[in-house]
Design a protein around this nucleic acid. Structure first.
Lengths: 252, 252
DNA sequence: CCCAATTTGTTCGTATGTATC
DNA sequence: AGATACATACGAACAAATTGG
């Protein structure tokens, strides 16, 4: 047994060490997205390690979405802003093991979506308002086929993704977008979407219409309340099926 | 320019392909955390690729927190549940590029922490309630040194991490834990913690005491309201400094 | 269109490190 | 201590992709 000081922490493999070293190097040198890292050959020289080791380190950074690699002249490894899709997929891996329920997701939605709606009131440009109305119009008539039903459900989720994208708060924006992605996933891969409960569905559509008007008019309190009600019916629509999230990894 | 059919999507390198293939293989075969993947040699045979390529694929999965590797007999690559710390760090990389403000974080906290408090009322075992009280007691007296000040601030954040860990909702639990980690980071690496505003600080401490009592008594509504007030003063305490988050990568 | 230069991508053989029995 | 089974690391050669002449 090692001395007490050692917290029995496994020594990191060399590729991991190199990857971490490069991360700090990037931060210390203030490299921004788009900036190029030293070429493979130079890294081999600088770290005194074999090509394979350096390459494994690059794969680590790449997997985290922090760099992109291009071949050819002018190619190399470039610092890259982690994309929302990548962050979504990486976080999705965490919840893969967690058996999320629809109720779990809606507990968050019910807390966050009203806050988002209130904070966006009076700030949305006409194009965005029009885009939201396009969504609503796309499911004006009840769906006839099961595929149409699924499409409508995905579009009604997209409505919320569009709203989320408008928030100046990256945290709020990401959280809501992530939950929409989880629900979309559920819709696509588990065929778990609205049973043909026309009444509740039309109610949801009405809420969205009223919401757009409140947002346009800049009525924050009203927008918040409409979203509270909207979330309540949406939850009602989806719950009761007691479904757990699909056991699959997200792409990104 | 390539034909229209090609969505100008760069073909993934072979290590990435292998990593993805293994992911689906794991899901399809229903492998759980702790299960062993085929040995390196067998993967080389099965995929018909060189050792280096397979190893790079493993580094990718490892970076995502999905597997751990061990050397020696009985060693190999094992499926691993993505840890909260790893998920936190990977998501942190996304926000590294996003210039979060204290206000951004508190917009979420103000929406989520009250919900958490309400949902936990009457459910906490005595040990946890005691642990919460320990936190509160550890900053009963005003701090004398700047280090003590920092410690107290970190402990007051830990109070919320303990609460978050008690939620049966993994999403809610993770979100709050993540925000606490962001604020802790801010505290440690930017030395941005409570200016010695004794009044506000003591107010916060009082809120936490009252909160524990409401949680013990099972008064959900009261717990929610106390948390609403607590978040408001906490935000007041930290804001005005208009700080953006530290530009560094999290560890995990 | 082809050729050459540049940079990453992949392979193979070998040797070393590490944990179990 | 020694044998075994496994990942880890190295180095040299060759392949593929991209850019510019």
């Amino acid at each position: 047994m090692p001395p007490v000081s050692t917290p029995s922490e496994a020594r990191a493999s060399r590729p991991v060490q190199v990857a971490e070293a490069i991360k700090t190097w990037v931060v210390e040198h203030g490299l921004k997205a788009g900036d190029r890292l030293p070429a493979e050959a130079e890294l081999i020289a600088r770290f005194g390690m074999a090509k394979g080791t350096i390459r494994e380190a690059m794969r680590i950074l790449e997997a985290q979405g922090l760099v992109k690699t291009r071949t050819g002249p002018g190619g190399g490894v470039f610092v890259h802003e982690v994309s929302r899709e990548r962050a979504r997929a990486l976080l999705g891996n965490y919840f893969y093991f967690k058996d999320l329920t629809v109720g779990d997701i809606y507990q968050l939605r019910q807390a966050l979506e009203p806050e988002l709606a209130a904070s966006l009131a009076g700030t949305l440009p006409p194009e965005v308002l029009a885009e939201l109305e396009d969504c609503i119009n796309s499911y004006a008539e009840p769906s006839k086929t099961i595929e149409e039903e699924r499409e409508q459900h995905l579009t009604s989720l997209r409505f919320h993704a569009i709203l989320a994208a408008q928030s100046p708060n990256p945290l709020l924006s990401f959280c809501i977008d992530f939950m929409v992605a989880l629900l979309s996933d559920l819709t696509v891969y588990r065929e778990l979407y609205a049973p043909p409960n026309i009444e509740l569905w039309q109610k949801g559509r009405t809420f969205q219409s009223r919401l757009v008007e409140a947002l346009r008019a800049g009525h924050a309190g009203e927008a918040r309340q409409i979203m509270v009600d909207h979330m309540a019916t949406a939850r009602e629509l989806m719950e009761g099926q007691e479904a757990v999230m699909a056991q699959r990894f997200m792409v990104g």
